[in-house]
Design a protein around this nucleic acid. Structure first.
Lengths: 160, 160
DNA sequence: TTACGTGCAAATAATTTGCAGTCCC
DNA sequence: GGGACTGCAAATTATTTGCACGTAA
């Protein structure tokens, strides 16, 4: 069920952040190294989930979906471990948490600076390449605070 | 527990969108009219919640918080009614739903075009006046879709 | 009167936690 | 071996739903 988003078009794909995924097609030992560098012990579960997450281009995924994928791939992990792992990866900056809408939390394997389209109703998330959009005249943060990130969500709805 | 946000400073308050709140200090009959215009029967509960929401400047509020406020003000409403009412108000464009972080949903009484600061950890939301910030080079929406809204969230963290 | 609203309690959904047992270094 | 990690089930938190009863037009 692909929706006709221009940015998902194969021709445009080379411009997608996914194209720059450093883990795409990367062998397991690189993954283990990546985890170790992040201070995480490369356990069977983490390697398996990391493989699913980082092995095939950038993605936006929920805990539930990753859990199903893991089951499907005959990887034996509990849902609780999926949640734990996602949060540990986020902590280690291998993932980024997305607050978009609804109760569900999405995780983005693309941790570089970029923004998102969000299709209302369909709950679909698509990257906006960073170069296409920028924010002008950012306000000065209040005393004692600094800006950690600027998130832009362009909400879409079907025309008529 | 006030945090030292410049934009919360009384001196700066006049510059806040709250200053433009059309309902601030408005009498009950105006509120009933406003509800009726929105196609909502002005029941006791809706008027009471509307009073709490729109009666004192713009605010960002969760269902739980509004429920507590209502109890505190000796307004007899159930939590389910608070949820229903918030969604009906949102449907009627009297409120705007905010997707910021975590599981909780916030509602904003300021439905005009503006963006937000979000303090990580403290889960605090503050308006950024619209004039301070704008987004350049919005991407063309994909075929068949149109942009319904652009949300910018400037995430803050305490400086060391 | 009568359709629209509301209260309550139970249901659901997403996520977290406690703890006994397992596994990497 | 020992602390880090995991699985499971139960607990929490946020929100929604079903249905009998109430109330504004």
């Amino acid at each position: 069920m692909t929706i006709p988003l221009r940015v998902l078009d194969p021709a445009a794909r080379a411009e997608q952040p996914s194209a720059g995924n450093p883990m795409a097609g990367c062998p397991v030992h690189k993954l283990r190294e990546m985890l170790r560098e992040a201070g995480l012990r490369p356990t069977r579960q983490r390697v398996a989930l990391g493989w699913l997450l980082f092995g095939k281009g950038h993605r936006h995924i929920s805990a539930e979906t990753l859990y199903e994928e893991a089951n499907h791939a005959r990887v034996n992990v509990s849902l609780a471990t999926v949640y734990n792992t996602l949060h540990q990866f986020t902590e280690a900056r291998l993932l980024r948490e997305l607050a978009l809408d609804g109760a569900k939390t999405y995780f983005d394997t693309n941790v570089t600076d970029h923004h998102h389209f969000f299709v209302e109703g369909e709950n679909k998330v698509v990257d906006i390449p960073h170069s296409d959009l920028h924010v002008e005249d950012l306000p000065v943060p209040p005393e004692g605070y600094e800006i950690s990130r600027v998130d832009v969500v362009v909400r879409l709805r079907p025309k008529d």
